[in-house]
């Protein structure tokens, strides 16, 4: 079984549009949307949800106001400035946890002299297995302002592998998140290939270099595709040589094409509606097939 992870470093370079197009061109793939923070792939693939599961992960400290003596030990020990004093309903000084700042380390729970703090599991979102016109899709939704996106990404990939095994499919196409942090690391570790989608801008160039360094850090071979390459040919040329210098190979160049957005508005992939970008993506797919 092979896993191709599409990432970009910089957001908005066309990662999701290209991942959806590749999923349409591939033979019986499983699709995994690992951009759990701002997932968009479902807008193009229109999944019909078959299974829905809660994502319970990590912990969040909760102080029982009735048992809090107001000693303030928890606030003193918290390294994340997540505990604040407030007036309880009976006018006493008590402490409360800011769920957004809490990292669930459990230090306050352990050292509260009144044992007034609990560390329950927190619900951080949900994940789904769905049917789409290209095949099964595993996707997720992180709750607003929730943590542990890396863990949810690992879960989505694990489930995608399970679905692939069970349905006898050999290729998983992963739509990864932007950046180079925790969810990106979780998206690409032990994948077979990463496809970095970049654009010929100073930011695209800068971010591609960092994301290629990350791929190298984890020992994953990388291919690069330059989207909207004709916006700035000079920068595109510079990006290609930077990519090669970073050990990646150039798998494709896609021209700027309004048909990509037009297809998106219709809830379709550009390879279903056609145009210059669609042709370039078909060419990209032929190159990737040889690579995989």
């Amino acid at each position: 079984m092979k896993e191709l992870v599409v990432i970009s470093g910089k957001g908005g370079t066309g990662k999701t549009s290209i991942a959806a197009a590749l999923a349409l061109l591939a033979d019986r793939p499983v699709v995994a949307d690992c951009d759990v923070d701002a997932a968009d792939l479902h807008l193009l693939l229109a999944p019909e949800v078959k299974e829905r599961h809660e994502f319970i992960s990590g912990h969040e400290a909760i102080i029982r106001a009735a048992d809090c003596t107001g000693c303030g030990r928890c606030a003193e020990l918290c390294r994340f400035a997540a505990i604040h004093q407030r007036k309880g309903i009976d006018g006493r000084i008590v402490y409360a946890v800011d769920p957004v700042a809490c990292e669930g380390c459990g230090v306050c729970v352990r050292f509260c002299p009144a044992k007034a703090i609990d560390l329950p599991d927190s619900r951080c979102g949900e994940w789904m297995v769905s049917d789409t016109r290209v095949g099964p899709m595993v996707h997720a939704r992180l709750a607003a302002a929730a943590e542990n996106s890396g863990k949810l990404v690992s879960l989505v990939r694990k489930e995608a592998r399970r679905v692939a095994e069970e349905s006898g499919r050999d290729l998983i196409i992963v739509d990864g998140p932007p950046g180079i942090g925790c969810p990106v690391i979780a998206s690409l570790t032990c994948a077979n290939w990463v496809l970095v989608v970049t654009e010929p801008t100073v930011s695209g160039e800068h971010d591609m270099a960092r994301v290629l360094e990350l791929a190298r850090h984890f020992g994953i071979p990388a291919a690069v595709c330059i989207n909207k390459y004709d916006i700035n040919l000079g920068t595109a040329v510079r990006i290609e040589s930077a990519a090669r210098a970073n050990g990646a190979f150039i798998a494709g160049r896609i021209p700027y094409d309004r048909k990509v957005t037009e297809a998106q508005i219709m809830g379709k992939s550009v390879v279903e509606t056609g145009g210059p970008a669609a042709e370039a993506i078909q060419q990209l797919w032929r190159v990737l097939c040889r690579m995989l």
């Binding site: 923070d37 701002a38 957004v100 700042a101 992180l142 607003a144 302002a145 943590e147 996106s149 932007p178």
Partner: peptide
């Protein structure tokens, strides 16, 4: 970009 921990750490 996004809506998770790094965004919250910034916007708070």
């Amino acid at each position: 970009p996004g809506t998770s921990c790094p965004v919250i750490a910034t916007v708070t």
